[in-house]
Amino acid sequence: SEFQINEQVLASWSDSRFYPAKVTAVNKDGTYTVKFYDGVVQTVKHIHVKA
């Protein structure tokens, strides 16, 4: 599913667990740039983002 900029989502971290994050960019290659609550910004594949 498509997510929008500033949408609150759950994004997987390197430990494969999902954490609350905010979408900061929707990228043309189908990835999302997300910002976790601790301030870390990461680009993740769409399969690693869920509502």
Rank of each mutant, 00 (worst) to 15 (best):
I5G: 00
A25C: 07
V34H: 00
E2F: 13
Y32P: 00
I5R: 04
T33S: 06
K35W: 08
Q4L: 08
A51N: 09
I5C: 07
H46T: 12
K22N: 07
K28T: 10
F18Y: 12
K28I: 11
E7S: 08
K35G: 04
G39M: 04
K50D: 08
A11S: 03
N6D: 12
D38Y: 07
W13V: 12
L10Y: 14
Y32T: 01
Q4G: 11
S16A: 08
K50F: 09
Q8D: 14
A11T: 04
A51D: 09
F36G: 02
H46R: 15
Q42L: 12
K50I: 14
S14P: 09
S14N: 14
H48F: 12
V44W: 03
A51R: 11
V41E: 13
Q4P: 06
W13H: 08
T33V: 12
F18G: 00
K22F: 13
I47Y: 09
T33C: 04
D15C: 09
I47A: 13
K50Q: 11
K28L: 09
A21F: 05
F18E: 04
Q4V: 09
A11R: 00
Y32F: 08
I47S: 13
K50S: 11
V44D: 02
T43A: 05
S12C: 14
Y37I: 10
H48S: 06
S12I: 15
V23D: 03
I47G: 13
T43L: 08
S16G: 15
A11Y: 03
N27V: 00
P20I: 03
Q8F: 13
I5E: 06
D15E: 10
N27Y: 02
W13E: 03
E7L: 06
S12F: 15
V41D: 03
K22R: 11
Y32N: 00
T31N: 01
F18D: 02
P20E: 06
E2K: 14
I47R: 09
A25V: 09
D38K: 06
Q4K: 12
N27T: 04
Y19Q: 08
Y37E: 14
F36V: 00
V40G: 08
S1M: 15
